[in-house]
């Protein structure tokens, strides 16, 4: 499982970086979206072993859980990260739309500083 996830995350990172290095600003944003998802998957995978069917509940009367349980924190981290990246990427999408409206190009090469 870890191995599959590793390959999956690795190819997502590679794809994201590839997309970001293209000239089209739409692909730039797609790259950012893939990157955000790859990062969330990475946290999910590396932050402790994936353990199914063991919720972090403590039996009544004891102080620590009796058996090994799934770590709830990574999920909280991912949830926060998803919300943040959603907001930020929504902004990015609006931004590229606005750039396209105002400047009329979607090619990074035509977004140089001196092309007044």
């Amino acid at each position: 499982m870890i191995l599959i996830m590793a390959f999956l995350i690795g190819s997502m990172y590679a794809g994201a970086i590839y997309m970001m290095m293209r000239r089209s600003i739409i692909k730039l944003v797609m790259g950012l979206i893939i990157l955000a998802n790859a990062t969330n998957l990475l946290i999910f995978t590396v932050a402790g072993p994936l353990r199914r069917g063991a919720p972090p509940l403590i039996a009544e009367g004891s102080i620590v859980p009796d058996q090994l349980v799934a770590d709830p924190l990574p999920q909280a981290l991912i949830l926060t990260a998803i919300v943040i990246s959603f907001g930020v990427l929504a902004f990015a999408v609006v931004l590229i739309h606005r750039v396209y409206e105002v400047i009329g190009v979607d090619d990074m090469n035509n977004l140089k500083d001196d092309s007044e």
């Binding site: 730039l28 931004l95 590229i96 606005r98 750039v99 400047i103 990074m108 977004l111 500083d113 007044e116």
Partner: peptide, 8 residues
């Protein structure tokens, strides 16, 4: 325009 260009 310049702002949008920089912002990207």
């Amino acid at each position: 325009k310049a702002q949008l260009r920089g912002a990207i």
